[in-house]
Each structure stands twice: as C-alpha cells, then as structure tokens.
Amino acid sequence: MVIDIPFIWVAFKEIAKAIPLTLVLAIVPVVIGFFIGLVVTFIREYKVKGIYSIANGYVSFFRGTPAIMHIMLVYFGIPMLLDSIINYFNLPYETNKIPIVLFVLFALSLTAGAYLSEIIRSGISSVAKGQMEAAYSIGMSTPQAMGRILLPQALAKSIPNFTNLSVGFLHTTSIAFLVSQKELTGTANIVASSNLKFLESFIAAGLIYWGISIIMEGIYYLVEKRVQQYSKGGVA
C-alpha cells in the first residue's frame, strides 16, 4: 500500500463540507449544557431538597460513563419512551420521523451539562468567600450578588476549563458517526470506503480536526486575555 498524497487534498475538500454540521454538534451542546450546568450547580450549592441527590447522581453518572453510552441510550431509549407515550394517548405522531441529529444533540447536551456543572462549581469555589460577604454588606440581594459579583469572577476563572471542554467536545462529536451522522469522521469514512483510500481520508480528517482545535484555542485565548485584563493579581 502506497500513500497517495494528492488524494489527501481531494479528500480534504470533500470532508471539509462536513465542518458546519460538526461545529453545530460541538457548539450547541456546550451552550445548552452551560445552562443545564448552571441550574445543576445552584441545586448542588444550595442543597435544594429532593432534587439535590438527583442532581448529584446525574453529574456522577454522566461523568462516569463514556459519551458513546449517552448517545446510544438516548438514540435507542427516547424513541421507545416516546412511542409508548404516543401509543398510550393515541397521538398522531411518529418517532421515526425525528431526525437522528436531534438525539445526538440531546445526548451531548446532557453530557456537557454534567461536565460544565463541575467546572462552574470549581470556578465558584475559587472565588474568595469575602466577595459574597462584601456584596451582602452593601445591601445586595442574593441574585444580585450572584449575577454581579460571584458568577462573573467564577466564569472568568473557568475559561481555561471551558477551552479544554470545548475542544474535548469537538472531538466527542466524532462518535456521532456511529449513529450514521455525516460529520467529519462520518464523511471521512464514506470518502474512505467509496475510494478505498482509508489512510489518506483519515489524514485529511485529522488535519481538519487539528486546525479547528487550534483555532478554537486561539479564540479562547483572546477571550481570556480580554476578560482578565481587569484582574491583575499575582506577580504578573
């Protein structure tokens, strides 16, 4: 087997068409997961009765099992659940008309929510306790103190973790090809098997992932610089 270098470029152009879907799969779950993470964090921080242990179990389970399980459980479980509800009420819907991409987005959002809640929690615990006390002492309410004092600082400190998570999720989207999504890995697989040039296609896909990862890290670096220009602590 000889490596066909010109074909890498042909594959590259073909696979690059899948970039938009990959970015949707990578970004939407992180955005939805961010809100899930915020809610879960507050439930866990304030130890809300009843749902507190559910929130703990959710984070622990989703961090303790591979993302492929979440996709598969949602992909096979949700249609079954919906079908039984539809049959029970005799509703005029069909679950097999739901696009698979929605299941992937749902599953990955749940995964992202669990990871983000841990990131936000560690960000909150890294803010000095005196900040909240100071906010209360000048008469702020809890939501005000949270929204204006605690969260901005906690989120700014979490940016390096957000970077790792976002790049990690870009890589997690590659699992979606197992449920026949035509994102980067899925397209690379199609290009590979229709031309019987596996190595070249996956080199092209690898280069695309690598490029997107570097761009993502660059964007976060700029955001981090912008956010932290007011917090000149330490020795710098």
Partner: peptide, 18 residues
C-alpha cells in the same frame, strides 16, 4: 490533543501497516 481518539485509532490502524 487536537484530534479525536477515533481518528488516531484509524490513523494507526491504516497507517502503521502502510
């Protein structure tokens, strides 16, 4: 750090023999 593990898996699987 810039590529998914599944791509690395395929690269080694098809690349190493080549």
């Amino acid at each position: 750090r810039g590529t998914p593990i599944i791509i690395q898996l395929f690269l080694v699987f098809y690349g190493l023999p080549a």
